[in-house]
Design a protein around this nucleic acid. Structure first.
Lengths: 125, 125
DNA sequence: TTATATGCAAAGCTTTTGCGCTGGC
DNA sequence: GCCAGCGCAAAAGCTTTGCATATAA
């Protein structure tokens, strides 16, 4: 357990958004100057393989991470602002299982993101 | 309308899988030797912006394409073989709309892929 | 001490782009 | 003849990796 790994874990614990590797690197650098982007990538991979992190792709070309701690959820991405909203819908979760089973598959994972724009924006004028 | 674009469109029309740019390039090269990967990328982007192609990400680091011709569908990816199975589930589609609306959003798109392994593999022996 | 982790820089991969040339119309 | 489109090669952006050094245990 090196100081770098400690700091990365700390940063992730304190983050309630979905940072990219670069973001984690920037936040970690403020706490521990002696850290490199390569180490961040290496550690993120370890944490993901250990089942501690979840890796997402929100369509902007970089991987985005979050800790697996709370209950499972999916994401809705505001296409105007990039904001990420989490949601859970048990019905959808169940239907995914059903669909997979009917096709002869056991579900090992899924990727489910909604993209949308806010209705009734307040800052309209 | 150049010969290159004609060939790319032809390749896409003849493909019923979800080729990456490199695949399209390879298939097109067999028909028309004088074609470059850059042209494939440029044309794919045009076709996507024109609403003729749909761009997917199945988690292998490259973009995968398919023509928008049939009804909308989602994908189930066989994590063992990479095979891609298409499916439609209206209930899920409706629930996505509902979820977005409840969060104050109008849905502009979604990304929904299931990952799984076959049940009852024949080659289990 | 000794294996493991790190930093740095180079390289890998997919995708994009600058530029001079080609070829449809 | 013009100009959109092409090929080529370089570059861009994210991520991985080789290697010598540093550090935890």
């Amino acid at each position: 357990m090196t100081s770098q790994r400690r700091v990365i874990v700390q940063v992730l614990a304190e983050s309630d958004d979905h940072p990219a590797a670069e973001d984690v690197y920037r936040r970690a650098s403020r706490i521990e100057g002696r850290i490199s982007l390569a180490t961040v990538y290496r550690t993120m991979r370890l944490l993901e393989e250990a089942g501690i992190l979840e890796k997402h792709d929100f369509g902007d070309g970089r991987a985005r991470y979050e800790e697996i701690q709370r209950a499972h959820h999916d994401h809705l991405i505001d296409v105007d602002t990039g904001e990420v909203i989490e949601f859970v819908n048990e019905e959808i979760e169940d239907l995914q299982e059903t669909v997979a089973r009917e096709l002869g598959y056991r579900l090992t994972g899924h990727r489910h993101e909604l993209y949308g724009t806010r209705i009734n924006k307040p800052e309209q004028d």
